[in-house]
């Protein structure tokens, strides 16, 4: 059973803004019955102000797909189309108090329907299928979409990609292709970070950077294994770290500390070294 928030359950059981708008100004359609979820979004737009004055949706899909669609309509109602375009899939998920990781693709679908409706309004060609080459044949997911979602959500594993786009969740034949795309993007990411112009590393900046890297890069994989770490202090180039959770007393503790040191050397400064508390 999925762990849905009360808000997801509520939006699923009592969805808001369901239905069609007869004289709609824009319509966006994504997904298909074969994929297992589909969303049709109708907008009524005030021509002068560009404000979305009414919005309705129809969704075929699971509880979180229905809740995400309904959340999207609440988020964009009364906003201008430019403001609406700033609503990301993350905003939809956050509005609902979070979605299970495996269900993030539902929020992505909401964002896509919105884009599709607004391009439709602006007289652009409605793009039912994103351009690019189909990678996942089961769910008709293109490489363009996979790349975009990896970048937007900072995804790191094939499992993430499946959770966010469904690609790879059917027969699994395309998993090696997804791995290849991931590798390419991860490589790009590292290069981008390396060529970033180096400013003088003040103490404040150094500590902030160390903290950020620990939060974003180091803790999530450790937490996934039930472990955790905390930054205790930075004395000159000495970074003091305390191991928590299953990391405590783990035979691999030394290796973990070495890996943290390696990452900090690579991303902050060659001179850093790490010590356990």
């Amino acid at each position: 059973m999925w762990e849905y928030t009360e808000k997801v359950k509520d939006f699923f059981l009592h969805p808001k803004n369901v239905g069609e708008i007869e004289n709609y100004d824009a319509v966006g359609e994504v997904g298909s019955i074969v994929c297992g979820d589909a969303l049709k979004l109708y907008l009524k737009i005030d021509k002068e102000t560009g404000k979305i004055i009414d919005v309705k949706f129809q969704t075929f899909g699971c509880a979180s797909a229905i809740a995400s669609s309904s959340a999207l309509t609440e988020l964009i109602k009364g906003r201008t189309i430019d403001e609406a375009l700033n609503v990301s899939n993350k905003d939809i998920a956050e509005y609902l108090g979070g979605l299970p990781r495996e269900k993030m693709h539902c929020s992505v679908m909401g964002r896509e329907a919105l884009e599709s409706a607004i391009s439709n309004y602006r007289g652009l060609k409605p793009e039912k299928v994103e351009e690019g080459e189909i990678v996942c044949k089961c769910f008709a997911v293109t490489d363009t979409k996979i790349k975009r979602v990896i970048k937007e959500n900072n995804l790191k594993t094939v499992e993430d990609v499946t959770n966010y786009t469904k690609a790879g969740g059917g027969c699994g034949e395309c998993v090696p292709q997804i791995e290849k795309i991931l590798k390419e993007i991860l490589a790009e990411r590292v290069i981008k970070e390396l060529v970033m112009p180096k400013e003088r590393l003040t103490n404040i900046k150094k500590i902030a950077l160390i903290q950020e890297i620990i939060e974003k890069e180091i803790r999530p994989p450790l937490q996934a294994d039930g472990g955790d770490i905390r930054l205790i202090d930075v004395e000159g180039n000495k970074v003091i770290i305390s191991l928590r959770g299953t990391c405590t007393g783990c035979l691999m503790a030394e290796v973990t500390l070495k890996n943290i040191e390696k990452k900090l050397k690579e991303l902050v400064s060659e001179e850093l070294y790490v010590e356990g508390e």
């Binding site: 699971c62 797909a65 495996e102 469904k166 969740g169």
Partner: peptide, 11 residues
């Protein structure tokens, strides 16, 4: 048997 009920999103 829906994909959405399985942990792997696999129908």
């Amino acid at each position: 048997g829906s994909a959405c009920t399985s942990g792997s999103l696999e129908p």
